[in-house]
Design a binder for these strands. Sequence first.
DNA 1: ATGAAAGCGCTAACAA
DNA 2: TTGTTAGCGCTTTCAT
Lengths: 342, 342
Amino acid sequence: MQANDPIKRSRRNSGAVTVRDVAKIAGVAPITVSRAINHPDTVSAELLRRVQEAVSKTGYVPNLMAGSLSSSKSKLIAAVIPSTVFSVFTETIESLNNALFDAGYQLMLGQSQYLASREEALLGAVIGRRPDGIFLTGIMPASNARKRLLASGIPVVETWDLTPTPIDMLIGFSHHDIGRAVADYFLDKGYKQFAAVRASDERADRRMSAFVERAKQQGLAPVHVVNVGSERTLTRGRQALAEILENASDVDAVFCSSDLLALGVLTEARARKIPVPDRLAVMGFGGVPIIENMIPALSTVQINSSKIGALAAEYLIARAEGRVVEAPIVDVGFSIHERDST
Amino acid sequence: MQANDPIKRSRRNSGAVTVRDVAKIAGVAPITVSRAINHPDTVSAELLRRVQEAVSKTGYVPNLMAGSLSSSKSKLIAAVIPSTVFSVFTETIESLNNALFDAGYQLMLGQSQYLASREEALLGAVIGRRPDGIFLTGIMPASNARKRLLASGIPVVETWDLTPTPIDMLIGFSHHDIGRAVADYFLDKGYKQFAAVRASDERADRRMSAFVERAKQQGLAPVHVVNVGSERTLTRGRQALAEILENASDVDAVFCSSDLLALGVLTEARARKIPVPDRLAVMGFGGVPIIENMIPALSTVQINSSKIGALAAEYLIARAEGRVVEAPIVDVGFSIHERDST
DNA sequence: ATGAAAGCGCTAACAA
DNA sequence: TTGTTAGCGCTTTCAT
């Protein structure tokens, strides 16, 4: 009933402060507020000041969803990882997120829990948000999800693996080469009876297959493999060594699909007073920082986890901003870090 | 130049498939497509079928940003945590994310790296996305950020701490009580000369202050405290014990602000062949799974990290969907898990 | 350097 | 049950 009742808004209105409110107070057009905030250098000093004043007076926080919808730039990067708990991926995510933050991007995190079913659903949600880029842990096999990803046109970086047919960009290393290299390394050191402790996951599978195959090629006895399924725990690593010793007491070298499992094997060896590395060698995978200064320090296949995250951020941001990424297929390699356990 | 050239779209158009395209193919109105997707039970079977067909034919993925803008519901929850690397928060985040996913929500993750400056910037970005809820690690002190959060009207849950003045909801425990309880526990066990190893963070500060104060209250000699700053590593834990022994060789019990630091202390003790727990007791904080089955198994102040995440998800989702949360202030407590190291 | 108009893709509100 | 209309809050396009 006020005289200056604004035009009757027939429907909604969420109540929050909008560009329009700020514009009215600053005595400018909404578009000027937008420019003052996003491209301050294209606006005169005087107007800039007035807008800033109005912004702080009202506590205006721009609605980024509206901005994204309008500009088709979301400043959002989505990452899909299997798990964060004591996993080698945490460092990748941390470096990815830090780099994104510095460039003004946000990270959306989806955890697939190593479940293919979940990955599919996750991807729908991810694409629906129209992120400017997608970070994938692992490579995406031919599937419905892959088709949707391809169709979306969103820049994608697959990581932690290599393939001749990436969706788009790729930052990884060869799991096959690792298995082979570890077998050769053990052989070199004079170990003769190998075992493997692994979780159920496709990449571990390839490392272990190559390890087993190489041992066979070199004329060794069959490798005793324990698959711990989805129980990626230290305890399960301990049990695995117990199983191995029961069934193949002459095993003298164990390759584990993760540092955590290797820590378990090491722990069980200690419990049984088995001399490491004299009687038993243990090799981990990943290179989480903690293992380096334990006693005994764990030898491992070291992956530069942070580098993967940092590179991925760089590539994704470049593409999001329309730049061309020169060499978007990178093999970051690996290195066997010899420590006390081998 | 085609005869059926559509109405000349004067401006933009991102090229992707939209509701309109699907609607045209299915021979219905756009809103019907929207309903068929979001509320399938309000649409006749026949139309539902036609819409689904059109969706799969076109590969339509709804633009959730547009939907959010229109409905003021983003189905996004933002979480701000200090760090993910070997941190006790990973389990909280994992359980939070899992619960959110099951309810159709996405997680946006921001890492503050324990930097107040970063937290402020992060919060701006977070509020700008208009998430349906915000998960905070720790409590937010009076500050500009707190004001903005309050003003935003977004449901907030603060965690991992207690305060009489939460912003909104709260799921935590008393750091003061922990420090006190650990001192009492050590005392009970007959230890007499305490030390502490801690990182720079406000919550560790309160645990340690209470620990120190209680020891004093009980007539013990001053507690020797080593502050490792931001170096939350196993190695730094080792160094810390070395420092302690150099300056206070009669120390017989060490309380650490994290399990990782405690693992370092334990490792150094082993390197020096100091009998644990006879000559030296070590207590960690957090309860990361790995410590339970190591040798020696680390005693720790166990926090139910997953429960915090799960509860937070429950509360945040309830509030996002307009429901009332009955008791939004929860003390999840803690428990001292006695293992080999004490 | 600034503004007016249009529209990003979706759904709430109202109508039939 | 289905459709029409309007508008969420912003920025692009075009004009001045």
